[in-house]
C-alpha cells in the first residue's frame, strides 16, 4: 500500500514539483501552504512522512516540528526538513528539534525520492 506524505511548504511551485515527483512514484500526497493551520493538517490524517519547510510564513518549521514531536499520537512521525538558507546552524537546530532528515534546496528529484522512500518505508 502506498504511503501518505504531507508536504508543508509556502512556495507553490516547489509544492507542485515535489507533489509531481512523489505522485509519479506512487505516494499519496497532501499539501499545506504556510505555517498557519499546518498543525490541523498534520492531525487531520496520519501521514507516514511529513516534508516540512523551515521558512514558513507566520510559523517557523522548527516550531511546527516541536509541536509534532510533543504530540503523543503523532510524535513518532518521520519528518524531512527542507531549507533554502543552507546554513549549518539550521541543520543543527533541525537535528535538535528532532528532524529525521534535513535537505538543502535545491535538491535533485532522485535525492528527495530516495529520502522519502527511506523515511516513509521505515515507518
Amino acid at each position: 500500500m502506498a504511503g501518505q506524505v504531507l508536504i508543508i511548504e509556502d512556495e507553490p511551485n516547489i509544492i507542485e514539483a515535489i507533489s509531481f515527483i512523489l505522485s509519479r512514484d506512487g505516494w499519496h500526497v497532501r499539501t499545506h501552504s504556510g505555517g498557519e493551520g499546518a498543525m490541523a493538517a498534520v492531525r487531520e490524517r496520519r501521514a507516514d512522512l511529513i516534508i516540512l519547510d523551515v521558512m514558513l510564513p507566520h510559523r517557523s518549521g522548527f516550531e511546527l516540528l516541536a509541536d509534532i514531536r510533543s504530540d503523543a499520537d503523532l510524535g513518532q512521525t518521520p519528518v524531512l526538513m527542507l531549507t533554502a538558507r543552507g546554513q549549518r546552524k539550521d541543520r543543527e537546530m533541525a537535528e535538535r528539534a528532532g528532524a529525521s532528515r534535513f535537505m538543502t534546496k535545491p535538491f535533485s528529484n532522485a535525492e528527495i525520492l530516495e529520502a522519502v522512500r527511506a523515511l516513509a518505508g521505515a515507518a
Binding site: 516547489i14 514539483a17 521558512m55 533554502a84 543552507g86 538543502t104 534546496k105 535545491p106
Partner: peptide, 14 residues
Amino acid sequence: SHELRTPMTSIRAF
C-alpha cells in the same frame, strides 16, 4: 541564499 535557492529549487525540479 534563501531568495536564490527557492526559485532554483523549482527550476531544477521542473
